[in-house]
């Protein structure tokens, strides 16, 4: 009996579209790329109302245990030991740009007295506006308001 030769399927993975997919991914990452100047890990308070923080705003971060770090929004954050250091930092930043916005990135569990001292020195440094960084709170968990 004469058997007809079987047609052999090519053992090739089609990769022609790979470059297109990879380029799409690159475009996504380039657009969403954001250099994080302050890498302090904090558990942010939650709020329903949230407005976009201006890019390059100066940052003051306070961890759960009260450790503070400051950044002018351009360079990486540096640790500071007291609110006097925050005052001299903020005064310097405001001297360079009186309209510079500040971001307060504080842990939700920090005792208010620590935040109070920081807000007080920012007021003394004549900072015009502070953004209280927060995570999104859903309306249902906010007590139905």
């Amino acid at each position: 009996m004469h058997l007809k030769a079987r047609k052999q399927a090519a053992a090739v993975i089609p990769t022609a579209s790979m470059a297109d997919i990879v380029f799409l991914l690159i475009i996504f990452f380039v657009l969403t790329f954001n250099v994080e100047v302050d890498k302090t890990r904090v558990s942010l308070p939650r709020s329903v109302l949230r407005t976009e923080v201006p890019k390059k705003a100066a940052i003051v971060s306070i961890t759960e245990v009260g450790q503070m770090r400051v950044s002018d929004g351009e360079s990486s954050s540096t640790a500071v030991s007291s609110t006097e250091d925050v005052l001299s930092f903020a005064t310097g930043v405001i001297a360079g740009n009186p309209e510079k916005e500040f971001v307060l990135k504080a842990d939700a569990t920090v005792p208010y007295k620590t935040v109070d001292r920081v807000i007080d020195v920012l007021k003394q440094a004549r900072v015009p506006v502070v953004y209280l960084l927060s995570d999104q709170e859903t309306v249902d968990t906010a007590g139905g308001n």
Binding site: L25, N34, S47, V53, L122, L132, S134
Partner: peptide, 27 residues
């Protein structure tokens, strides 16, 4: 392009960039 993707994946972060604005009164 894969090298570029790995670079962007490692260095990019989804930073929290929203919060409540709080205008400080002038001294």
């Amino acid at each position: 392009t894969f090298l570029l993707i790995i670079f962007f994946m490692v260095t990019s972060t989804f930073a929290a960039t929203r919060g409540l604005d709080f205008s400080l009164p002038k001294e």
